[in-house]
Amino acid sequence: MTDDAAPDGDDTTTLTLEAFADTIVPGEKRGPDDVAIAGAAPGPGAVQAGALELLGMFAPGISEALDGYAQGVNEHALGYARERGLDLDAALPPFVALSYADRAALVRTLTTPGHPEKDFWVLLALFCNMAYDTAAHMHTTDALAAGHPGLTAMGFMPPDADGLWRFGAFSYGRELASIHPDTTSTGSPS
Protein backbone atom coordinates (compact mmCIF):
# COMPACT_ATOMS: atom_id res chain seq x y z
CA MET A 1 0.00 0.00 0.00
CA THR A 2 1.27 3.45 -0.82
CA ASP A 3 -1.19 5.67 1.01
CA ASP A 4 0.61 7.72 3.66
CA ALA A 5 -2.25 7.17 6.06
CA ALA A 6 -1.98 3.39 5.84
CA PRO A 7 -0.66 1.62 8.92
CA ASP A 8 2.88 0.26 8.84
CA GLY A 9 3.64 -3.42 8.43
CA ASP A 10 3.34 -4.53 12.04
CA ASP A 11 0.11 -2.65 12.53
CA THR A 12 -1.25 -4.05 9.31
CA THR A 13 -0.57 -7.59 10.44
CA THR A 14 -2.05 -7.01 13.86
CA LEU A 15 -5.15 -5.22 12.61
CA THR A 16 -5.75 -7.79 9.91
CA LEU A 17 -5.32 -10.81 12.16
CA GLU A 18 -7.53 -9.20 14.78
CA ALA A 19 -10.18 -8.67 12.13
CA PHE A 20 -9.85 -12.31 11.05
CA ALA A 21 -10.14 -13.56 14.65
CA ASP A 22 -13.11 -11.27 15.18
CA THR A 23 -14.79 -12.83 12.17
CA ILE A 24 -14.55 -16.29 13.74
CA VAL A 25 -15.72 -15.27 17.22
CA PRO A 26 -17.01 -11.70 16.95
CA GLY A 27 -17.02 -9.28 19.84
CA GLU A 28 -17.84 -5.75 20.80
CA LYS A 29 -15.47 -2.91 19.93
CA ARG A 30 -12.81 -2.00 22.50
CA GLY A 31 -13.44 1.67 21.90
CA PRO A 32 -14.91 4.10 19.38
CA ASP A 33 -11.74 4.02 17.25
CA ASP A 34 -11.53 0.22 17.08
CA VAL A 35 -11.44 -0.69 13.40
CA ALA A 36 -10.28 -4.31 13.68
CA ILE A 37 -13.28 -5.48 15.65
CA ALA A 38 -16.44 -5.05 13.64
CA GLY A 39 -18.76 -5.05 16.63
CA ALA A 40 -20.95 -7.83 15.26
CA ALA A 41 -21.80 -9.44 18.60
CA PRO A 42 -22.20 -8.33 22.20
CA GLY A 43 -19.51 -9.12 24.75
CA PRO A 44 -15.83 -9.78 24.16
CA GLY A 45 -14.83 -12.09 21.29
CA ALA A 46 -11.74 -13.91 20.11
CA VAL A 47 -9.59 -10.76 20.08
CA GLN A 48 -10.26 -9.93 23.72
CA ALA A 49 -9.85 -13.61 24.53
CA GLY A 50 -6.24 -13.47 23.38
CA ALA A 51 -6.23 -14.66 19.78
CA LEU A 52 -3.17 -12.64 18.80
CA GLU A 53 -1.29 -13.89 21.81
CA LEU A 54 -2.09 -17.48 20.91
CA LEU A 55 -1.19 -17.04 17.24
CA GLY A 56 2.14 -15.54 18.28
CA MET A 57 3.09 -18.49 20.45
CA PHE A 58 5.68 -20.90 19.12
CA ALA A 59 3.56 -23.99 19.89
CA PRO A 60 0.88 -23.70 17.18
CA GLY A 61 3.57 -23.52 14.52
CA ILE A 62 2.28 -20.55 12.54
CA SER A 63 3.93 -17.59 14.31
CA GLU A 64 6.41 -17.11 11.49
CA ALA A 65 3.61 -17.18 8.92
CA LEU A 66 1.51 -14.41 10.42
CA ASP A 67 2.71 -11.66 8.10
CA GLY A 68 1.96 -13.97 5.20
CA TYR A 69 -1.50 -14.66 6.56
CA ALA A 70 -2.24 -10.95 6.84
CA GLN A 71 -0.88 -10.23 3.40
CA GLY A 72 -2.82 -13.12 1.94
CA VAL A 73 -6.20 -12.25 3.38
CA ASN A 74 -5.71 -8.61 2.42
CA GLU A 75 -5.02 -9.62 -1.16
CA HIS A 76 -8.14 -11.76 -1.14
CA ALA A 77 -10.07 -8.82 0.32
CA LEU A 78 -8.93 -6.54 -2.50
CA GLY A 79 -10.08 -9.09 -5.04
CA TYR A 80 -13.36 -9.56 -3.19
CA ALA A 81 -13.97 -5.80 -3.16
CA ARG A 82 -13.00 -5.38 -6.80
CA GLU A 83 -15.42 -8.10 -7.91
CA ARG A 84 -18.25 -6.42 -6.04
CA GLY A 85 -17.34 -2.83 -6.81
CA LEU A 86 -16.82 -2.02 -3.14
CA ASP A 87 -14.97 1.17 -2.30
CA LEU A 88 -12.58 0.38 0.56
CA ASP A 89 -11.09 2.88 2.99
CA ALA A 90 -7.49 3.09 1.82
CA ALA A 91 -6.31 4.04 5.29
CA LEU A 92 -7.12 0.53 6.47
CA PRO A 93 -5.83 -2.89 5.48
CA PRO A 94 -8.31 -4.13 2.88
CA PHE A 95 -9.71 -6.97 4.99
CA VAL A 96 -10.20 -4.60 7.91
CA ALA A 97 -12.00 -2.18 5.61
CA LEU A 98 -14.66 -4.79 4.83
CA SER A 99 -17.93 -4.94 6.76
CA TYR A 100 -18.49 -7.90 9.04
CA ALA A 101 -20.83 -9.49 6.50
CA ASP A 102 -18.19 -9.20 3.79
CA ARG A 103 -15.41 -10.44 6.06
CA ALA A 104 -17.56 -13.46 6.92
CA ALA A 105 -18.42 -14.13 3.29
CA LEU A 106 -14.74 -14.04 2.36
CA VAL A 107 -13.73 -16.34 5.24
CA ARG A 108 -16.45 -18.75 4.19
CA THR A 109 -15.06 -18.80 0.65
CA LEU A 110 -11.50 -19.37 1.86
CA THR A 111 -12.50 -22.25 4.14
CA THR A 112 -14.87 -24.06 1.77
CA PRO A 113 -13.79 -27.39 0.23
CA GLY A 114 -12.26 -26.85 -3.16
CA HIS A 115 -10.49 -23.60 -2.30
CA PRO A 116 -6.79 -24.20 -2.99
CA GLU A 117 -5.74 -22.49 0.26
CA LYS A 118 -8.42 -24.05 2.43
CA ASP A 119 -6.07 -25.89 4.81
CA PHE A 120 -4.11 -22.71 5.41
CA TRP A 121 -7.16 -20.67 6.42
CA VAL A 122 -8.81 -23.44 8.43
CA LEU A 123 -5.67 -23.63 10.52
CA LEU A 124 -5.84 -19.93 11.32
CA ALA A 125 -9.54 -20.17 12.12
CA LEU A 126 -8.93 -23.15 14.38
CA PHE A 127 -6.45 -21.29 16.55
CA CYS A 128 -8.58 -18.13 16.65
CA ASN A 129 -11.46 -20.26 17.87
CA MET A 130 -9.28 -21.96 20.47
CA ALA A 131 -8.27 -18.62 21.95
CA TYR A 132 -11.92 -18.06 22.80
CA ASP A 133 -13.36 -21.44 23.71
CA THR A 134 -10.26 -23.12 25.11
CA ALA A 135 -7.88 -20.32 26.17
CA ALA A 136 -5.11 -22.56 24.89
CA HIS A 137 -2.52 -19.81 25.45
CA MET A 138 -3.09 -19.83 29.22
CA HIS A 139 -3.17 -22.29 32.07
CA THR A 140 -6.87 -23.04 32.37
CA THR A 141 -6.90 -22.28 36.07
CA ASP A 142 -5.31 -18.88 35.40
CA ALA A 143 -7.74 -18.19 32.58
CA LEU A 144 -10.72 -18.87 34.81
CA ALA A 145 -9.28 -16.84 37.67
CA ALA A 146 -8.76 -13.93 35.29
CA GLY A 147 -12.31 -14.16 33.98
CA HIS A 148 -11.27 -15.27 30.50
CA PRO A 149 -14.07 -14.10 28.19
CA GLY A 150 -14.67 -17.38 26.35
CA LEU A 151 -14.51 -19.86 29.21
CA THR A 152 -16.53 -17.49 31.36
CA ALA A 153 -19.22 -17.00 28.73
CA MET A 154 -19.45 -20.76 28.26
CA GLY A 155 -19.96 -21.24 31.98
CA PHE A 156 -16.90 -23.44 32.36
CA MET A 157 -17.00 -24.47 36.00
CA PRO A 158 -13.93 -23.91 38.18
CA PRO A 159 -11.70 -26.55 39.77
CA ASP A 160 -11.16 -27.48 43.39
CA ALA A 161 -8.58 -25.56 45.40
CA ASP A 162 -5.79 -27.85 44.16
CA GLY A 163 -6.50 -26.94 40.54
CA LEU A 164 -8.12 -30.30 39.70
CA TRP A 165 -11.73 -30.83 38.73
CA ARG A 166 -14.03 -33.12 40.71
CA PHE A 167 -17.79 -33.31 40.52
CA GLY A 168 -19.37 -35.03 43.51
CA ALA A 169 -22.85 -34.65 42.05
CA PHE A 170 -22.87 -36.14 38.58
CA SER A 171 -25.84 -38.46 38.12
CA TYR A 172 -29.64 -38.49 38.13
CA GLY A 173 -29.07 -41.80 39.88
CA ARG A 174 -31.95 -43.73 38.45
CA GLU A 175 -32.96 -45.90 35.53
CA LEU A 176 -33.97 -43.63 32.67
CA ALA A 177 -34.62 -46.09 29.85
CA SER A 178 -35.21 -49.75 29.22
CA ILE A 179 -32.05 -51.52 28.20
CA HIS A 180 -31.94 -53.34 24.88
CA PRO A 181 -33.62 -56.75 25.24
CA ASP A 182 -30.73 -58.57 23.58
CA THR A 183 -28.04 -57.20 25.89
CA THR A 184 -25.63 -59.97 26.91
CA SER A 185 -24.40 -60.76 30.41
CA THR A 186 -21.29 -58.64 29.74
CA GLY A 187 -23.43 -55.58 29.02
CA SER A 188 -22.67 -55.72 25.29
CA PRO A 189 -24.91 -55.98 22.23
CA SER A 190 -25.55 -59.58 21.21
Binding site: F170, S171, Y172, G173, L176, S178, I179, H180, P181
Partner: peptide, 23 residues
Protein backbone atom coordinates in the same frame (compact mmCIF):
# COMPACT_ATOMS: atom_id res chain seq x y z
CA UNK B 1 -27.53 -46.41 36.26
CA UNK B 2 -26.02 -45.09 39.50
CA UNK B 3 -22.79 -44.18 37.69
CA UNK B 4 -24.43 -42.80 34.55
CA UNK B 5 -23.67 -39.09 34.29
CA UNK B 6 -26.18 -36.30 33.75
CA UNK B 7 -25.31 -36.25 30.05
CA UNK B 8 -25.77 -40.01 29.77
CA UNK B 9 -28.97 -39.74 31.74
CA UNK B 10 -30.50 -37.02 29.62
CA UNK B 11 -29.64 -38.99 26.49
CA UNK B 12 -31.19 -42.15 27.95
CA UNK B 13 -34.32 -40.28 28.94
CA UNK B 14 -34.58 -38.74 25.47
CA UNK B 15 -34.17 -42.18 23.89
CA UNK B 16 -36.88 -43.56 26.14
CA UNK B 17 -39.16 -40.65 25.30
CA UNK B 18 -38.63 -41.37 21.60
CA UNK B 19 -39.36 -45.07 21.94
CA UNK B 20 -35.79 -46.32 21.98
CA UNK B 21 -33.85 -48.40 24.44
CA UNK B 22 -30.61 -47.14 26.00
CA UNK B 23 -27.88 -48.99 27.87
Amino acid sequence: WDVVTYSGGVFAAACDHAGRTAN
